[in-house]
Computed example of a mutant assay.
Amino acid sequence: MPEPEDMVMPMLREMRAEMRESFASAQRRFDGVDERLDRIEEAQKNFRHALTADTMMSRLVTGDFEERIKALEAKVDDLMKAR
């Protein structure tokens, strides 16, 4: 049986090789996660842009409606004054 001092270096080399292999496989898994997160972030960005566009359209329609009501109110006021 070899002396314990002679076994330390081979064991450390073996542990180092196992760690490298483990880190490499973890990195491959993380690469897939990064791609999925990028797709999710892109979808969220598109959703935010759609919400912004919808909000702007709603404000435009509401503003146009309010202007038309003000014009009608002004006409009614003019008719009431003409009486």
Rank of each mutant, 00 (worst) to 15 (best):
32 G>T: 10
11 M>Y: 15
5 E>Y: 04
17 A>T: 01
52 T>P: 00
46 N>F: 12
17 A>Y: 02
57 M>V: 04
5 E>S: 15
59 R>C: 03
21 E>C: 07
36 R>T: 10
65 F>Y: 03
22 S>V: 06
76 V>A: 04
33 V>A: 05
30 F>D: 03
4 P>Q: 04
70 K>I: 13
12 L>M: 15
41 E>G: 02
23 F>E: 05
81 K>L: 05
56 M>N: 13
27 Q>K: 05
73 E>G: 11
16 R>A: 08
38 D>F: 02
5 E>V: 14
79 L>R: 00
83 R>N: 07
29 R>S: 12
42 E>T: 06
31 D>I: 06
37 L>R: 04
67 E>I: 14
31 D>R: 07
55 T>I: 08
50 A>F: 02
12 L>C: 12
41 E>K: 05
26 A>W: 00
42 E>A: 14
37 L>N: 04
18 E>G: 06
60 L>Q: 14
49 H>K: 12
83 R>G: 08
1 M>C: 04
10 P>H: 07
22 S>E: 12
78 D>K: 00
76 V>D: 06
76 V>P: 00
30 F>R: 07
1 M>F: 05
2 P>Y: 05
3 E>L: 15
69 I>V: 15
71 A>C: 08
68 R>H: 11
51 L>C: 08
9 M>A: 11
34 D>C: 07
21 E>M: 04
6 D>V: 02
3 E>W: 10
51 L>V: 15
59 R>S: 06
77 D>A: 14
29 R>K: 09
80 M>N: 13
15 M>W: 09
25 S>T: 13
5 E>M: 11
78 D>T: 01
2 P>F: 12
54 D>K: 07
30 F>Q: 05
60 L>V: 15
63 G>N: 10
54 D>W: 03
62 T>F: 00
13 R>Y: 12
70 K>M: 15
19 M>Y: 13
24 A>W: 00
69 I>A: 10
29 R>Q: 09
54 D>V: 06
60 L>H: 12
34 D>N: 06
35 E>H: 07
44 Q>T: 06
13 R>I: 10
83 R>Y: 10
73 E>C: 13
50 A>M: 01
24 A>H: 01
82 A>H: 07
64 D>M: 15
14 E>S: 14
11 M>I: 12
74 A>N: 01
48 R>S: 13
42 E>N: 06
26 A>H: 02
24 A>G: 00
20 R>P: 02
67 E>F: 03
72 L>D: 15
9 M>R: 11
42 E>S: 08
55 T>F: 03
26 A>Y: 00
65 F>M: 15
77 D>T: 00
13 R>P: 01
32 G>C: 13
77 D>H: 03
32 G>K: 13
47 F>L: 12
10 P>A: 01
45 K>Y: 14
34 D>V: 04
75 K>E: 14
12 L>R: 10
31 D>N: 12
52 T>W: 06
63 G>D: 12
81 K>W: 02
66 E>G: 02
9 M>T: 15
7 M>Y: 01
61 V>C: 05
